[in-house]
């Protein structure tokens, strides 16, 4: 088929950040499907809780303190996270490097506290369905947390190499910031469900 030139794209930029970039949309897609998974797991918990009048099946209440500390750490981490985002938009390499180191540490810290959260549930996964659901919910979010912290550490190392000075990499940092927001946001309903719904009854 014959062709006639109708548009010249030679002046277009070679990268874009936020919703301009396909990676941002891909990240959003994965958030949507992971969010659906979380919502369904939370739905399963509520379904069981509403099916059994004696929920939480006579189990002792979980100790909420480790979970509360994790929550506070996660909320605090949002501040440097968004500072990092601004530096990434400015393509400023040194502040981005520092920001990523800070975010890696602020990712590891809640993971350390998370270790103490499991025993603080005061029930095992195989005691009854209530225990199973607590472990499942906490396990799901922990997997999520480990994955993103691993991702952040790899990106941090990458930004210290010669590959760091490219628009594409700064875009990756922005998407990492975006995903961390989701890790924090998805924790809040799970935190309330695990530690505060048993205290309602």
């Amino acid at each position: 088929m014959k062709q006639r030139p109708a548009a010249d794209l030679s002046a277009l930029p070679t990268y874009g950040i936020g919703p301009r970039s396909p990676t941002w949309w891909g990240t959003l897609g994965f958030m949507a499907l992971e969010g659906t998974g979380f919502a369904l797991a939370a739905g399963a918990y509520l379904y069981l809780a509403l099916s059994w009048p004696q929920w939480p099946l006579g189990a002792p209440r979980p100790n909420h303190w480790p979970g509360t500390i994790v929550t506070l750490l996660l909320i605090v981490s949002l501040v440097p996270n968004h500072m990092l985002n601004r530096y990434a938009e400015q393509c400023a390499i040194m502040p981005v490097r520092i920001g990523l180191v800070v975010m890696s540490l602020l990712g590891i810290a809640p993971l350390v506290v998370r270790w103490f959260e499991f025993p603080a549930l005061n029930i095992y996964w195989d005691t009854n369905a209530y225990g199973s659901m607590l472990w499942v919910l906490l396990g799901l979010h922990t997997t999520h947390l480990i994955t993103d912290v691993g991702d952040t550490i790899v990106l941090t190392v990458l930004m210290f190499t010669r590959h760091g000075n490219s628009g594409r990499r700064f875009g990756d940092v922005g998407d990492n910031v975006f995903y961390w927001d989701f890790v924090v946001a998805s924790w809040i309903p799970i935190y309330l469900l695990i530690y505060w719904t048993p205290r309602l009854g």
């Binding site: 069981l48 195989d126 369905a129 472990w135 499942v136």
Partner: peptide
């Protein structure tokens, strides 16, 4: 697979599952 492999009771009505 959790119910089958590690003994959770999510689908087990005898232990509060459904």
């Amino acid at each position: 697979i959790l119910d089958r492999l590690v003994g959770t009771h999510i689908f087990n009505p005898a232990e509060g599952g459904d």
